[in-house]
Simulated assay, not measured.
Amino acid sequence: MTSRVTLVSPATSPSMRRARFDDGDSLDEAGAAGARSAAGCLRAPGRVLTSPSVRCRETAGALGLVGARDSAPAGLDAGRWRGRTLEEVGAAEPEAVGRWLTDAGSAPHGGESVREMCERVGRWLDAVQGTDGRTLAVVEPEVVRAAVVHVLGLPADAFWRLDVPPLTATELSGRAGRWNLRLGRPLTGQDAAAAP
């Protein structure tokens, strides 16, 4: 049994543009327009899931993905840093930010460490791998990073070395505890004919 999972990163939002820890904002107009223009470029999945954030749910809607359930992994719990920009937190707590960016087990914000998140996303992927068919999940960029760390068996510190642009698809296929990976295909209306 081969499982196929497509992870789609959300379109842009004001918090994403400002490098602000997600505060529940909606997509900005450019992000919503980009997602609407990419509608129809993804192969129809058996299951459509989203991270519970507003921007992931709105991206799924703009892409025309109907029947999406909020059962994909949530983004990183940034604790008391939620809603603040990385620049603001760095100015107020430079040592804490430095520790957070260099130690995957650190969670100075009182939320979740990068290592904990990678493990959580890995458990979710392992559960999905036990199902047959296609799963499409619109998820936060850090969920995509954590998934790549998991499927390639990378150390959690590699998380920060992975960039996930908005509106890209990362495709996983696997069986028997092994995954194959296709990284970051942009979602555009032009790609509809080339969608796998």
Rank of each mutant, 00 (worst) to 15 (best):
D77V: 07
V164I: 10
A156K: 14
G174H: 08
T168C: 05
R145G: 03
E116D: 14
E95C: 00
G75E: 14
V143D: 09
L136M: 06
A74H: 14
Q129E: 15
V97N: 10
R82T: 15
G122L: 07
R175F: 01
R123M: 06
R80F: 14
E87R: 15
T85F: 03
A78L: 11
D157P: 05
G105P: 01
V114S: 06
A74T: 09
G110T: 11
V121Y: 11
A146L: 10
L136S: 05
G98K: 09
Q129N: 04
L172E: 04
L136V: 08
L167E: 06
A92V: 04
D77L: 01
D103E: 13
A92Q: 14
V138E: 03
S106Q: 09
L172G: 05
C118R: 09
W81F: 08
L152Y: 12
G110I: 10
R178Q: 14
D163K: 02
V89R: 06
A169H: 04
E142S: 11
V148D: 11
A169I: 01
A156E: 15
E87C: 02
V114Y: 02
G122R: 08
P165F: 05
G79S: 06
G75M: 05
V164E: 13
V143C: 09
R161P: 10
D77S: 07
V139A: 12
P73K: 02
V143F: 08
L136A: 07
L162P: 14
G83L: 07
H150F: 12
R123V: 12
R161W: 13
G111T: 12
T168A: 03
C118E: 12
E142T: 11
V89T: 13
G90M: 03
A127H: 15
R134V: 03
W124C: 07
E171H: 07
E119D: 15
A169K: 01
P108D: 00
T131W: 03
E88S: 06
D163E: 15
V121R: 10
W100V: 01
G90T: 13
G130F: 07
G122P: 06
P94C: 04
V164F: 06
W124N: 12
V114T: 12
G83R: 10
G174K: 05
E119R: 13
V121E: 09
L125R: 11
T135I: 00
R80S: 14
E93S: 02
R82L: 07
H150E: 08
R134A: 13
E116K: 00
V148P: 09
T168Y: 04
T170M: 00
D77K: 02
T168P: 02
A147T: 13
L86S: 03
G90K: 02
L125C: 08
G133A: 05
D103V: 01
R80N: 13
R145L: 05
V114R: 01
R134W: 10
S173P: 01
D126I: 01
L101C: 06
A146F: 08
E171F: 00
S106A: 15
V144H: 09
R99G: 04
A147D: 13
E142C: 07
